[in-house]
Every structure is written in C-alpha cells, then in structure tokens.
C-alpha cells in the first residue's frame, strides 16, 4: 500500500519534471551570470580557477554558511554521541609491521598532497574542501592502520576554531579596512596564474582546508570511538 502511494507520488513528480526540463535543454544553459564570471572573473578576483572565484568571492557568503554547516555537524555529532558515553578501554589487536610502517610512511605524504590541493585552489581544480577531505583521509588511514592512535581533541578543536575565526576576521577586515564590503577582496590581486595572486582567496582556502580537515577527522574520530 505504502509503495503504491509512493510510486503514484513519484510519477506525479516525474511528470512535472518532464514538463519543466523541456524548457531547460541539456547542453545549452542560460548563463547570463555565469558568462560574466568567466569574462570578468580574472580581472575582478585574480583567480585563474573561475569556480574558486565564484566560491570564495562572488558567492563567498555561501561558503561561510557552508563551513558553518560542517561546523554544526561536527559539534552536533559530538553532542549526540557524547551524552552518557561509556569510557571503556578495549584491547585492540595491533596491526602487522608492514601495515603499520606503510601507514606511517604514507601519512605525511597524504597530508602534503592535501595541503598542495588547498594552497593551489585558485590555480588548479581543487580547493579548501577537497584538500581538507584529503587531509582527513590521512587520519582515516592512521585509524585503520595504526590502531589506538588518536588525534588530540584539544588540538583539532583549536584548529577548527581558528580556521573559522580567520575566515570571519578576513571578512570583517574587508568590511572595516578594505573595500567597505564584507568579504571584499582587498589585498593586491597579483599576477594571474602565480601562487601569490588572487588577494584573499588563498588565505581563505588555507583556513578552510585546515578547518575542514580537522572537522572531518574529528567526525571520524567520534564515530570510531563510539562504534568500538
């Protein structure tokens, strides 16, 4: 009965979708706003990667909201899992020497790769979120390969907070000192396609990278701890 109603509902939605999608032909979208970003993004923001200039400059406020959502999830996950948590130590079977050494060898390399991704966010595909996810994956590797090792909760919390505060601080600096707008790109734009270009964008992406990395690592840490 339930599935019949659901299917009926989905058919109605599908019919509606087909009606609308005929007005949105695939492969030739209406890009008035997008075309302007492509045409003028380089002069206005100094970033070679237009997606980055949209994410951090044109729609930077969304990104502020986005890191907030992740922060809410990290904090909320801690709140949900922390109540009445039983602190119990369990015997953990340690990994074999090959696995252990391999993980320890790979860990700094993955961190380095993650950092590369978020530092070059304004030049190449990638950015703070992608780099942060890679950084967090390094921690997952350590959790799997070198059992019993944990990130320090205080450290990850501090990094998380500082990352967010730097983002807000730069935004407020833009409001107070720079172009008189919140989050305006008030630093010199530099030469296109070099590492030191695009004003505040690399700084913001580094802050986001650290924040996302520590948050995701914290989320995984909480889930592992609770399921063990």
């Amino acid at each position: 009965m339930r599935s019949i109603i659901s299917i009926f509902l989905l058919v109605v939605i599908a019919w509606g979708m087909i009606t609308v999608l005929q007005e949105i032909p695939f492969g030739s979208s209406e890009t008035r706003v997008g075309q302007r970003y492509i045409d003028q993004g380089r002069e206005e923001t100094g970033a070679a990667n237009i997606v980055t200039s949209v994410v951090l400059n044109y729609r930077g406020f969304d990104t502020l909201g986005e890191i907030t959502v992740l922060f809410v999830a990290a904090i909320g996950l801690g709140a949900v899992l922390s109540t009445n948590r039983k602190k119990k130590k369990r015997e953990i079977e340690s990994a074999s020497l090959v696995l252990y050494t391999g993980c320890r060898f790979l860990f700094p390399l993955i961190l380095l790769f993650g950092a590369y991704i978020f530092i070059h966010g304004h030049l190449t595909p990638g950015g703070g979120f992608q780099g942060g996810a890679i950084v967090a994956s390094a921690f997952v590797l350590v959790y799997l390969g070198c059992r019993g090792r944990r990130i320090s909760e205080t450290g990850s919390k501090a990094v998380e907070s500082l990352g967010g505060l730097i983002f807000i601080g730069i935004g407020l600096a833009g409001l107070a000192v720079g172009g008189r707008y919140f989050l305006s790109n008030f630093l010199p734009k530099g030469e296109l396609n070099t590492l030191f270009s695009a004003g505040v964008i690399p700084i913001l992406y580094i802050a986001i990278g650290f924040k996302v990395g520590s948050e995701l690592a914290g989320v995984i840490d909480h889930l592992i701890e609770d399921s063990e």
Partner: peptide, 11 residues
C-alpha cells in the same frame, strides 16, 4: 561551462 552550478554543488 557555467561555473555557478559547480560552486553550488560544492556547497
């Protein structure tokens, strides 16, 4: 291609 939806998808 249009950069805006890519930024939206990231979010």
């Amino acid at each position: 291609v249009d950069p805006v939806p890519q930024a939206l998808v990231l979010t």
